[in-house]
């Protein structure tokens, strides 16, 4: 049984409920605005040919990243995909570090050695962004196994897309986590598409993650992934369950990406009107209205917007001024001794 009814775009939000509190609400809003501004900037920089390689934006999916990250405690671990800028930023990684990596500069998170698909910041609990579909679900299980073995109370949270539910590693990880009762939370961001193919065309069930949950003895959970409050509450529940030793959760978040799959994709395969319908349920728009409903002033909201824009502007300038990585990092950190020697 779904705990929440599946929400079509245009359905009502979660209504007035005071459980989250103003401070957290403002944090949820601010986080979503950071993700939006930073990723829109990444897109602009790509158009100026300053972002090299590929990049996968989460524009339109900010509520998932913000909601899950804001519900985390320090020490909780995030495992992301190549579509991981948002999840990385949501853990508090500075915008400059992320944009720097996208621009492949020396000030980037990994000094240009990883690139946009592999954002990692262990000091912020971002344990890597993985570009081989499904690979990180078992890895998150391993981190959770360590917590269980050592009696640590952190939770491993693993984000992935709808398309990922059709690869073997998804099913191996779900069974493994359930059998070992691991403190891991699997978050499927169902944005309706894999790269270009609608998920419904290639999947035997309607809800690619949730409809498989029963196969692993897990509850079927589908939530509105565009409402940060809904996401935040569901995350809290799942983390509490994991910390209490009651095992994994699988949460399917219904959402939509506003841009193409990757920077080169104009997303022509979408039916007419679909994007516009989803934009009516833009997570940031929803959340701005929520804040106003709760009596937050227009000015407070505008101040947050302005501060975030300034932060992103400053980061952009810092990245443009940053040097390219030096050639001597080419052969560092292949092995733990810091070098690359494979022979004597």
């Amino acid at each position: 049984m779904a705990r929440m009814s599946d929400r079509a775009p245009g359905a009502a939000g979660s209504g007035l409920n005071d459980d989250i509190g103003e401070e957290k609400r403002l944090a949820l809003y601010r986080s979503q605005v950071v993700l939006r501004e930073a990723e829109q900037r990444a897109f602009d920089l790509f158009l100026q040919n300053l972002v090299k390689g590929t990049s996968h934006l989460s524009l339109g999916q900010e509520a998932v990243a913000a909601g899950f990250a804001e519900a985390m405690q320090k020490g909780d671990l995030s495992f992301c995909t190549y579509r991981g800028h948002a999840h990385t930023l949501a853990r508090g990684v500075p915008v400059e570090k992320v944009l720097g990596e996208l621009m492949q500069r020396d000030n980037g998170l990994m000094r240009g050695k990883g690139g946009s698909m592999h954002l990692t910041s262990e000091e912020h609990g971002v344990m890597g962004s993985y570009a081989i579909i499904g690979a990180h679900l078992p890895i998150a299980c391993g981190a959770a196994w360590r917590a269980q073995y050592k009696g640590h109370k952190d939770v491993s949270v693993c984000f992935f897309g709808d398309g990922t539910t059709n690869i073997g590693a998804f099913h191996e990880a779900l069974n493994f986590a359930a059998v070992w009762k691991l403190p891991v939370v699997f978050v499927c961001e169902n944005n309706l598409y894999m790269e270009y193919t609608p998920i419904a065309d290639v999947t035997a069930v309607q809800h690619p993650a949730a409809d498989r949950a029963s196969a692993y003895g897990l509850e079927r959970i589908v939530i509105d992934g565009n409402d940060a409050d809904v996401v935040y509450r569901e995350a809290q529940k799942a983390y509490a369950k994991a910390r209490a030793g009651n095992g994994p959760s699988l949460i399917e978040c219904m959402t939509y990406r506003h841009s193409g799959h990757s920077r080169a994709d104009p997303a022509k395969y979408r039916p007419e009107g679909e994007l516009e319908r989803w934009k009516l349920r833009d997570p940031i728009k929803i959340y701005r209205e929520r804040l106003l409903q709760f009596g937050v002033s227009e000015k407070t909201i505008a101040d947050i917007d302005a501060r975030v824009r300034k932060e992103v502007d400053d980061a952009t300038e810092a990245c443009k001024a940053a040097p390219m990585p030096p050639l001597d990092i080419l052969t560092t950190d292949v092995y733990a001794d810091g070098g690359w020697a494979w022979r004597n």
Binding site: G142, R146, N175
Partner: peptide, 23 residues
């Protein structure tokens, strides 16, 4: 000493996640 399901990806993935975080 843990017996696993027949899930080679889960075995190696879990080993990696555990190794990354201290085991």
């Amino acid at each position: 000493v843990r017996d696993t399901p027949i899930s080679e990806q889960a075995i190696l993935g879990a080993a990696m996640g555990a190794a990354m975080t201290g085991l």
